[in-house]
Write a protein that binds this DNA or RNA. Sequence first.
RNA 1: GGCUCUAUCGUCUAACGGUUAGGACGAAUCCUUCUCAAGGAUUAAAUCGCGGUUCGAUUCCGCGUAGAGUCACCA
Length: 474
Amino acid sequence: MSDTKVVTRFAPSPTGFMHVGGVRTALFAWLFARKNKGTFILRIEDTDKAREVAGSIDHIIESLKWIGIDWDEGPDIGGPHAPYKQSERLDSYKKYAQILIEKGLAYPDPYTSEELEAFRKKAEVEKRPFLYRDYRPESFRKWDGTKALRFKTPEIKSYKWTDAVRGELSAGPEALDDFILIKSDGYPTYNFAHIIDDLEMGVTHIMRADEFISSTPKFLSLYDALSIMPPVLVTLPPILGEAGTKKLGKRDGAKDILDYKKEGYLPEAMLNFLAFIGWNPGEGDNREVLTKEEIINFFDLKHVQRAGGKFNEEKLIWLNKEHMKKLSQKEIEKNIFEYLPSEIRNPKLIPVIFDRISKWSDVKEMVAGGEFILFFKAPQINKIKLIYKKTSQEKITENLKLAIKSLESLSDDEFITEKIKEVLIKIADGLESRGELLHPVRYALSGKDQSPDPFIIASIIGKNETLSRLQKAI
RNA sequence: GGCUCUAUCGUCUAACGGUUAGGACGAAUCCUUCUCAAGGAUUAAAUCGCGGUUCGAUUCCGCGUAGAGUCACCA
């Protein structure tokens, strides 16, 4: 490790909501900064006015905060390298553009968009990659700001570089072209702006997804032209959609990360899950349910994957439940109650519900599905269903009477799950099979083929209601 | 089409060049249990193919195959 302090950044463009791919990129950059006691910067790359979506920045900030990512410098909190929105840093880009112009390494694009389109078509027909530099003008005019400013690639050659995850990477000269530095609207392109910003903000490690590998030679040639030492490049594997092999993007239905919040996922579960797509602690540690602090502690570049990973919702659901189990009873109750109608907010219901959900919004579905109606309304009883296997009707009636008798002997204070179970099991064990008693009792109380056990139901609905339902069944 | 990247159970993945290729999700079976859920146990399931280097290759190299990325006045 060098003595330079690690500085990483997440630089989204405000073009809509954040999906899991974006959050994962942010997460890795953040984890690396936190692990190395470095600085994490949030920078907004708002240089495409046409694609900008109002409210995106707030949405991005809310998404990152929800999952537990914080930043040391950013548009909302400022910092030593402010401003943190590219649209407010135009002077910087102009300054470096001027340096390139003076070196003869930048020139105005003389073509119209129609002309460019024709060049591109021609290349496509000829099954060649389109290279603007094939059409580079012989002599450069003076740039007046009304035309796009292009970078004159100083040397067309192959590039080799080292990626912290992928190792040695290379590209042929075809990867190099005279790309646009500043658009005709005065805003810089990503290709130019991110290099200047990273330089001025002291970024030491650039983490980004693998779609940037093919443009890396362009960046490298610009670093060369400006005599800048490039930061460490870290390529992250893509997150693939669950169904296919394609990179997960908004068009394939990638969800807004805040939708997961709405669905009642825990942010620490989502963080845990995202950290494990494309990374793992490796070596002997097989644990997968980790806290934020543990993940920071374990995080390293060595175990970042090269291949893409699929977004597996099943595993997210499991992980969410695992994190739910770590919560205190109080927290569990609070979250479940939020989705429960006030008339059935009985603390005794919590364990019954908790075993049957893996995210908070499942409670809502249970309510909608009528799962709880049995707890506050006596069910309709179907005589046939009261019968346990081949037991006679008389026997069932007799057993229900026995149950009533023994439950009556319990005082109100004793009418708790454990006591009820003790009493009923004692009778049931004296019978040919426990089901002869437990089935009719459970059915009489619930009116359902499938339900929680009779002991917990009885304790929740109380002594009076229990006896009344059993009586009714008889 | 050019350039480039990637490749271990269905999925996420582990494994100084030496392991009966390990774990987790999911699945199946069993136990527990009147039912459901939860819990416990067990099982099935993988090194893309062909060469090469090596005493020895999941691991290194080459070729092939498959998938992906990119070739914008988008990032």
